[in-house]
């Protein structure tokens, strides 16, 4: 029990830096790490003097999103350089290429202080992967909701045009749209959009 407690204590002491220009995503990740007991989580944004800012924090672990061009800046920390207090290595467990692939797929990459045991930070990487995936799921859902709303608007406008021009009821207008979509193997929203375009042209 004592050893477990001390392990938990030492892990929550790890200093973790998140480099991510998406504030929402980095907040989601920070929350995940804090829930797992990590108290020293620092979020870093922007590109100016990035390396200096990271050196000043002197982290044990750095998490960065793969869409961030600043990733190459971090590579400088691998090198034996006078500016580097503690060399940083990429988190790579060559025996575990599946976990690297999962990280790249989720869009996150991690760097750790050289010498830090890989198993001590494996769960940090796991949290990053799952939070990044959760974020992209939310983003996709949001996009889908947005485009569904847009489609709804387009269909409503097209219905309005049909009702007016052909003196149809709303239901009849919709049935007509749906039939046309089935005939042409297109989405109702696409048919609706072409009706709107045609109506604009014929104005």
């Amino acid at each position: 029990m004592i050893s477990l407690a001390s392990q938990v204590f030492s892990e929550s002491n790890l200093k973790i830096v998140i480099v991510d220009d998406s504030p929402v995503r980095s907040a989601i990740l920070e929350e995940g790490l804090r829930e797992a007991g990590h108290r020293h989580v620092i979020r870093v944004e922007g590109t100016d003097n990035l390396l200096e800012r990271i050196y000043a924090i002197d982290p044990d672990v750095i998490l960065i999103d793969l869409a961030n061009p600043s990733r190459d800046v971090l590579e400088q920390m691998f090198r034996v350089s006078r500016a580097v207090k503690r060399p940083i290595a990429m988190f790579v467990d060559q025996s575990d290429s599946a976990s690297i692939a999962a990280a790249v797929d989720a869009g996150v990459s991690s760097y750790i202080v050289d010498g830090l045991k890989k198993d001590r930070i494996k769960h940090i990487l796991d949290i990053s992967i799952s939070r990044f995936n959760a974020f992209s799921r939310i983003s996709t859902e949001l996009e889908q909701t947005k485009s569904a709303l847009e489609e709804r608007k387009v269909i409503d406008r097209a219905k309005g045009i049909l009702m007016k021009r052909k003196s149809l009821s709303e239901e009849e207008a919709y049935t007509l749209l749906r039939a046309a979509a089935q005939n042409e193997k297109k989405k109702i929203a696409e048919i609706a959009q072409s009706i709107i375009t045609a109506a604009e042209l014929l104005k």
Binding site: L66, A67, N68, P69, S70, R71, D72, L74, E75, S97, I100, A101, V104, S109
Partner: peptide, 15 residues
Amino acid sequence: EVSWSNVRDKLNIGM
């Protein structure tokens, strides 16, 4: 891609 690190890693893991 946006970084050489990404190009290298995605090449390395076969993406």
